[in-house]
């Protein structure tokens, strides 16, 4: 414990010159907690529309998009002023979203309507694409040519051609796929299956399942291992996935696809995010209402900080200068 505290102190002392702000969506509170990335103090608790879940940073780092499922819209938060500056009609029950790398298009999973909404940056809806039931995971490929969505109820990953705006492949994965994430080199798509308890690694070109990664933690019942959020380390060599009621985050070697480690975090971790300096992984713990900070290099949980009730997702952005 002492060692841990010491590490924490060192880590905090060494914390980045790149100051960042961390945004955590709190599903039950209808708020977003904003933390200062250096002090981990709460800068502001922003009241949002109802049921905020999916949360991402815009391509230029200036805005945060929040899916407010029960109000059928996106709240757009200004990173500098921490105010909601715009609300976009997202189609029914938005759960998760992603933007392309130029920041021109927003892709939204409409959970209740088995659709993906494709939107211009200004909120103009380009089209809606029918997919499986309860779409959730959403990921734009590094070259912007494909967007992947996962449908929780149907149990598939759907690949959408972003030029033709139509489905090009539907791949069956294990039960209740929650999240899709492109490997940084774009060659694979990693899909977490919450009830299946596994991560599927899909070939980004052929769309088939290349490999299935399973988990085993001493003393934890296998049925409690429920992967949800997933992120890669900044150098692309490690994957981190939050295992839900197993209360751990798994660390996976991307090259060998072997599980290297399990890190104990708070209760029922769901979505996670990497710090901008690539040193930390932030974990939203749904049941303990806090966020755990994992140091990537040591693979240790440094500490947890309280946020709102039922924290769901996390986004990070550079703090304004000065």
């Amino acid at each position: 414990m002492k060692r841990l505290l010491l590490t924490t102190a060192l880590a905090l002392a060494a914390m980045p010159a790149l100051a960042e702000r961390i945004f955590v969506s709190n599903e039950r509170d209808n708020t977003v907690t904003v933390l200062d990335g250096t002090s981990m103090e709460v800068l502001k608790t922003i009241e949002t529309s109802a049921r905020p879940r999916g949360i991402i940073t815009s391509h230029d780092g200036k805005l945060i998009y929040v899916c407010a499922g029960d109000d059928n819209r996106l709240d757009v938060i200004d990173v500098e002023t921490l105010e909601i500056v715009q609300q976009l009609d997202s189609g029914p029950d938005p759960e998760l979203l992603d933007v392309d790398h130029a920041g021109n298009r927003i892709y939204i999973a409409n959970e209740d309507d088995a659709m993906v909404t494709v939107m211009e940056r200004d909120g103009t809806i380009i089209t809606e694409i029918g997919v499986g039931i309860e779409p959730e995971g959403m990921a734009v490929s590094p070259d912007d040519s494909i967007v992947v969505t996962t449908s929780e109820s149907t149990g598939m990953a759907h690949f959408i051609d972003t030029e033709k705006l139509e489905l090009v492949a539907n791949t069956v994965v294990d039960t209740r796929p929650r999240h899709a994430e492109y490997q940084l080199d774009g060659s694979k798509v990693w899909v977490t299956s919450e009830i299946g308890g596994i991560v599927s690694v899909l070939d980004a070109k052929g769309f088939g399942v290349d490999k299935v990664i399973s988990f085993e933690i001493a003393g934890v019942k296998p049925e409690l291992i429920q992967p949800v959020g997933l992120r890669f380390s900044g150098d692309g060599t490690l994957a981190f996935t939050a295992l839900g009621p197993a209360n751990h985050v798994a660390v996976i070697d991307v090259a060998t696809q072997e599980v290297l480690d399990y890190i104990l975090v708070g209760q029922r971790p769901w979505h996670i995010e990497r710090s901008l300096d690539d040193k930390y992984i932030y974990v939203a713990n749904g049941l303990s209402n806090d966020m755990t900070i994992i140091e990537i290099e040591s693979r240790e949980a440094l500490r947890s900080v309280p946020v709102g009730r039922l924290p769901w997702g996390i986004a990070v952005a550079h703090a304004p200068e000065g």
Binding site: T175, R176, I195, G197, E223
Partner: peptide, 10 residues
């Protein structure tokens, strides 16, 4: 074998 039934467990 696991059927999803909205119970948080297969």
């Amino acid at each position: 074998f696991k059927t999803p039934g909205f119970k948080g467990i297969g």
